[in-house]
Amino acid sequence: MRTSLSHRCARFLDARDMLRRAFPFAHAQMIPICAGMAAGQDRPWDAGRLYACRDLIQEETGLFSNFRGAGHLAVITLLALSPAPEERMAFALQGYKVLRTRFYASQYLPLAALLLADWARGRDLDGVAARAEEIYRRMKREHPFLTGAEDSVFAVLLALSPDTEQAVVDQVEACYDALKHPFGTGQYTQALSHVLALGEGSAQEKRDKVLGVYQGLKAAGRKYGAGYELGTLGSLALLPAPVEELTADVLEVDEFLSHQKGYRGILGLPKNQRLMHSAMLVSGDYVDQRKTSVMGAAAVSGTVAMIAAQEMALCAVMVGGIGASAAANNDG
């Protein structure tokens, strides 16, 4: 395993264990997702910073605020990873207020607001929100029974594209049509199509890359989940690396995790979740290696691809329905 990926895996396990100790009542599947985001940080992480961000949320929001809902631990994590949590929280609250003029309140809007805090500073927030609303409305028209509150996050990300609203939705639909035969016509395929629409290239090219990794893992005896895990697989397909290289890296991380506490034995996490975590770590490592060139580029597609690789795993888990059960088990 290359050094950068090995270090990322070690940081991931350390962050996971620390989060478990700090928030013992958090949803079990949210902890590794948040740890995956923390694994990209070189500086030491401690529970004190997390508790300070938790307290910041409590100071700035009401008891029943969606910032304290199913994604509470995710919001805490994203703030703790920021060099200036107070500033990020202030901007997220501003973004949330703007989004609430366009979308119904939901547990997903705080995540969208935090993404705006990173990628829409200096832009016309109301204009971005208006584009997101229009994109969401067109998504809903195409798939009235599949499109739900969780898609507001994708709509905000897609609104950062320089393309017209219809061109964005056309790309989403092209990806969905290309994916529905291998993966079906449900909400997870739709979520995957949203992730892929964030990146460059044709729908067919992106479909082929997803299937290349999916089938490569299957050929090696690893069956990747076709449920909420698909969003993370999509983040791999956005990376500028050959299918064979991505597949080999995921297999290497999966083998490593299979011997680690929490993954091994009959009491360990299911293999499909382990494989998803492996894909998440690999995508994050590739992003870190290319972060300078991505951030230096003007292309919005490159920027949102980075967001997808680092944070879309969280969206995918939430889309998978964890939100409802996490609400009953969140850290309070």
Rank of each mutant, 00 (worst) to 15 (best):
R2T: 10
R2A: 13
A15R: 07
A15H: 01
A15C: 03
R16S: 09
D17N: 12
M18H: 11
Q29N: 15
M30H: 15
P32K: 10
I33A: 15
A35G: 03
G36Y: 02
R43P: 00
I57Q: 11
Q58D: 15
E60D: 14
E60N: 13
S65F: 05
N66Y: 15
F67R: 02
R68G: 11
G69I: 12
H72F: 15
L73I: 05
L78G: 12
L81N: 08
P83L: 02
P85V: 08
E86L: 09
R88I: 09
L93D: 13
Q94P: 10
T101W: 01
S106R: 05
A113L: 00
L115M: 02
L115D: 00
L116S: 11
D118P: 00
W119N: 13
R121Q: 04
R121P: 03
R121W: 08
R123C: 11
R123N: 04
L125K: 04
L125I: 03
D126N: 13
G127K: 02
G127A: 09
V128N: 03
V128T: 05
R137K: 05
K140I: 00
K140A: 10
H143N: 04
P144M: 10
L146Y: 04
A149Q: 07
A149R: 02
E150N: 10
D151V: 06
F154I: 07
L157Q: 10
S161F: 06
D163P: 06
Q166V: 12
Q171W: 09
C175K: 04
Y176T: 07
A178I: 06
L179D: 05
F183P: 06
F183G: 01
G186R: 05
Y188N: 10
Y188M: 10
Q190F: 00
Q190C: 10
L192M: 01
S193G: 07
L196F: 08
A197H: 08
L198G: 05
Q204P: 11
K206P: 00
K206D: 01
R207L: 12
R207T: 09
R207G: 03
K218Q: 05
G221V: 03
L230Y: 07
G231Y: 04
S235H: 01
A237F: 01
A237K: 04
L238A: 11
E244A: 10
E244T: 12
T247I: 06
D254V: 02
F256H: 12
S258G: 01
G262K: 07
I266G: 12
L267K: 06
L267D: 09
L269F: 15
P270W: 05
K271Y: 13
N272D: 14
Q273A: 13
R274A: 07
R274P: 06
L275P: 03
S278E: 02
A279I: 09
Y286P: 11
V287F: 08
R290L: 11
T292A: 14
T292F: 12
M295Y: 08
G296Q: 01
G296F: 01
M306R: 13
M306L: 00
A308I: 00
E311N: 00
E311L: 14
L314F: 03
L314T: 04
L314Q: 11
C315H: 12
V317Q: 15
V317I: 15
M318Y: 01
G321L: 05
G323E: 07
A324P: 00
A324S: 15
S325Q: 13
A326R: 06
G332K: 15
